[in-house]
Design a protein around this nucleic acid. Structure first.
Lengths: 415, 415
DNA sequence: ACTATTTTTTTCGAGGCTCGAATTAAAGAG
DNA sequence: CTCTTTAATTCGAGCCTCGAAAAAAATAGT
């Protein structure tokens, strides 16, 4: 509820419905009494809300799993989200790879497809065509019992707009301003969200390790590019026009190494895989970097850096300094928060950690180096997938509540 | 209303009361019909809310100023905030200066006092003593007709905690962790907010130039230190633990010049007045900088920089680069926003502008230099004052609504 | 001077919502 | 087969907003 917005009596019901759905999604299986305890709502209200949700098919009574049997009084009847009320789709768009998955409303995988696409020379129509054909396949294979498609969540490696409809720019494909949101929304008649993959990673981490990543934390993706997903006060932090906190393009060295974005001195120009490759191949830091980096070659360089103190090790140390410099500035703005390092760069954390910490905390003052909480997740793909899924499901949870009378069938195209 | 919080029917009334008070504060004088138009509430609701507000003394009918007389039907009766329902106090704490002011609920000045205090060698008790004695004086001088003191807003040059009760650290005084909020709250039995002066400046700018500074903008204070007040999506951006976006302590040069905060390479260590003085006096960048800079000496250096291309001009160019480097990184995180430059540094903008713009936009790529909207406000004090005042008044507007039945008298100590 | 017109504001009933208290439902315990 | 215990629903009171109708307070016209 925004500060200068008008409130109506039924907004109250909407908010409380959302609350019930939220705890139901968090805990999976909950009796009405449990919901009362979790939410603080009165039993009467919970009763009213759950009967409505059940009659709309959003929630079902799951009497079978009566685990808590042998107790005295009337047994609780467990409620759960009805998996068959809706289907959602996720699409991950990465370098040379498209991954599309269908999930039910409880977040269980229905079907998936991987497809290799040469994204570097794919037009926007190629990409859209590939995505649509994959989604068509999946939707066709789906058994008829499942719910209808109600949301699509895309996680792309690139910059998206704040409205989450368009991919403004991406390193993995030449075209820019690709309106994935509009196209898919038109074709499948559902709401679509297009987000940066780092934001999806952050969303996933919240669900995987809620204790560590709750209200305030940062997920930094170190792979072909460098991005960041940031949560502040429990909400994703989005830019004003574009969607992402472009950590990789904070300034590290004025007029420094050439970045893929066309500017000079970005963190990414020192810490991404292409930056490492450029440096260790003895080329000029202002040379155009490679567009695609071979994972095996990168790993070989990392191993050489581990083996001996040569230019390879120096390159990784530079990367650590660049990331540390960015973190130091970031923490000046928002105070230190837990950091998750994700992607191939997380696999070489041993090579960058020391320099990174030294730059973040300098040699004196303001907090000790051990305050910096970092955890590494070398494989980003499962996180992106789960983040997309949760984004879609949460969208449904906070969208279905709206038309209390008309039931489930009404869905807005708006994202 | 937070996402996972329970909603009750009377929350609706609270929200709508707040809405009415907000438009009333924005427009000053409004009939009930005007309020209907401004808020979108129904006439019945506006009537209910306004009669309640009037009966509680928060709003009054101002029949005298019937400017819109000669019209056909029943004349509108203008409503306005009742200035006498409350008094608020502001305290600005700056280097060697304390400024305390009393305002009424409409924001009209009642009384004020300036006092010179040697803050650099004042203990926390000295500061608290000075502030309390000034407030006591002002409250005593106040005519008995005015309302009782209901909020105090402090704007301090220093870092405050996120709860706005404590000044964690400040360059202008040796003591740290001074609990101004608790002490004043205890002594005067009112809610107290302690905030960084930059946030107050930002708040003031929103009211002075709402067209330019609305949802997203940054106010950067360049004086003895460098701070920033940032608004994103219409809300002040606060850190997680401390209150401010510490723009001045973003990293400019790793292991660079010594900053007053004890670390090395902060933007402030290149762009603040003490940094300019240190540089132009030929001292080592890692020397401890001066604690207090004479305004006349600073101005003299600026004039020498304007006159000839020597080390003075170079110092200001370095400052421009440092600020530009910070802006470039900031804009990577949040997209470019309008910037207000405030304080003594804004008076020498001619000396730093060129380098600043060049660093922000590099020599190529991503947007042109003219996109960067900067306006200068050399005198920060009126802005800090107005910001404190508005902060207090808005606090009342969104606090008084709560106890709908008990009327005006109930006030919570919580900030 | 008096009625008609116009505009503002209030009043009143309908329809939501939450909540507490009482009631009904559905088990195990004795 | 009754008693006890716990879960869930029902019902009335008290909020809230809103639309329609009524009341209030002025000007315009004859």
């Amino acid at each position: 509820m925004l500060l200068d917005e008008i409130a109506r009596p039924d907004d109250v019901r909407r908010q409380n419905r959302r609350l019930v759905l939220t705890v139901l999604r968090q805990h999976g299986l909950l009796s009405r009494t449990d919901i009362v305890a979790q939410t603080g709502l009165s039993p009467s209200t919970v009763s009213a809300i759950t009967t409505a949700l059940i009659s709309e098919g959003i929630v079902t009574e799951s009497r079978d799993a009566d685990a808590a049997a042998n107790r005295r009084g009337r047994p609780q009847v467990a409620l759960t989200l009805n998996p068959d009320i809706a289907t959602i789709a996720t699409v991950e768009l990465a370098l040379n790879l498209v991954h599309a998955v269908l999930f039910d409303y409880k977040g269980q995988l229905i079907a998936e497809e991987f497809r290799r696409v040469s994204t570097l020379d794919a037009t926007s129509d190629d990409l859209i065509g590939a995505i649509c054909s994959m989604l068509d396949n999946l939707l066709e294979s789906k058994t008829s019992g499942a719910g209808r498609l109600m949301h699509i969540s895309m996680g792309v490696q690139g910059v998206t707009d704040a409205a989450s409809t368009t991919m403004l720019w991406s390193p993995i494909t030449p075209d820019s301003n690709i309106p994935f949101g509009e196209v898919l929304s038109e074709r499948y008649d559902v709401a679509v969200g297009v987000a940066n993959d780092c934001n999806m990673i952050a969303e996933a981490l919240r669900w995987i390790e809620p204790d560590r990543y709750s209200d305030d934390f940062a997920a930094i993706l170190l792979s072909h590019g460098i991005g960041m997903g940031l949560y502040l006060k429990g909400k994703p932090f989005l830019g004003v026009h574009s969607s992402a906190a472009e950590f990789g393009h904070m300034l590290h060295v004025p007029d420094g190494a050439l970045c893929r974005c066309g500017r000079h001195g970005c963190i990414e120009a020192y810490a991404s895989d292409y930056a490492i490759m450029r440096k260790t191949s003895g080329r000029n830091p202002k040379d155009q970097p490679a567009q695609d980096v071979d994972a095996a070659a990168y790993e070989a360089i990392a191993n050489r850096a581990r083996a001996e103190d040569g230019e390879e090790r120096a390159a990784f140390r530079n990367a650590g300094q660049a990331i540390g410099s960015g973190l130091r500035s970031l923490f000046s703005l928002i105070d230190p928060v837990p950091v998750a390092l994700v992607g191939s760069g997380a696999g070489v954390f041993d090579l960058i950690e020391e320099d990174l910490r030294e730059v973040v905390y300098g040699t004196s003052g303001w907090g000790a180096a051990e305050d910096l909480k970092i955890r590494c997740y070398p494989d980003e793909h499962p996180l992106i997938l789960q983040g997309c899924m949760m984004t879609s499901l949460l969208h449904l949870d906070t969208q279905i509540f709206a038309p209390r009378d008309a039931g489930d069938a009404s869905l807005k195209r708006a994202v």
